[in-house]
Amino acid sequence: MASTDQGPGPVDRRSSSRPVAKRADGNEIQERYLRRAIAEINELGDELLALGDELHVPVLGSGHPLGDIFLLKHRPTPSEIQEGVAFFGRSGQALLKSLQRLSVDPLAVYGTNCLKFGTEAPAEARGWLTRELHIVQPKLLVAMGEETVGFLNELEFPLSDELDPGRLGESQPFTPTIEALVTPDIDASLDEQSAKTRFWNAFKALGAWWAELPPY
């Protein structure tokens, strides 16, 4: 991670340079996939930045562009809007601590919001999220909050199943290749101890999932 204040991944969107992702251990085919994913994520970011202005700043995804884990919440917070980076601030710090406690590699994580500006029409935002999911191709999608689950259920992503927002902390099929884990909204879970506990009880299932992931 570039900073303890940022989200779960190594991409620093505040920098003028392109993101530097982890290499693929000499695997040429994987390296090609990685270069293509970086280019496509940057292309999406450039398109969103071109749509922004002084009053409407896009919040771009952060993390590994081929991350096994895709963290998703509904809308950006003021701190994320100020920095233009998803999971910047309190939620990013809380998630980093949670990932460390679960022994999950934060370099295997990509994080973003359903809404990129926080004010756009959901129909417009669905196209951007669909592109992100196609680019990253995660193995596990962590959907944070009922609004996020509702957004995903209306996404009409190819071969996707409807997620049950009531099945907190349970693995659910999203597509034939992507599992889903539903948790409470992280941004609404940071102030009260009972809310923190409820989020953790659902999110900690990620640790068991990660431990069972084949090392190849």
Rank of each mutant, 00 (worst) to 15 (best):
L96S: 12
G145H: 05
A208G: 14
T130W: 13
P65A: 08
R167N: 05
L60S: 05
A121K: 13
T4A: 13
P78E: 11
G26Y: 05
T197W: 09
G169H: 06
S62W: 02
Q93A: 13
D25K: 10
L99Q: 07
A143K: 05
R198H: 10
V182K: 02
Q193W: 05
F70A: 11
D164V: 00
V57Q: 10
K196H: 13
G63E: 04
E212F: 07
P76F: 03
P19V: 03
L107P: 03
E28Q: 12
L51D: 03
I186Q: 01
L72S: 07
E54F: 12
V109P: 07
A39L: 09
D12P: 01
S62E: 09
A143V: 04
E54G: 06
I178L: 07
A123Q: 13
S189C: 02
V57K: 11
A125P: 01
S194W: 07
E83V: 09
A125F: 08
P214R: 09
S79Q: 14
S160Y: 07
R101Y: 15
W210P: 00
V149W: 02
R75I: 03
E28V: 13
V57F: 12
M1L: 08
F87P: 00
T77Q: 09
A195K: 14
G89P: 00
A202L: 02
V104K: 02
R101Q: 14
W209N: 09
A205E: 14
N201A: 09
P173Q: 02
Q6N: 08
Q137R: 15
L72C: 10
A86D: 01
K116N: 10
E47W: 05
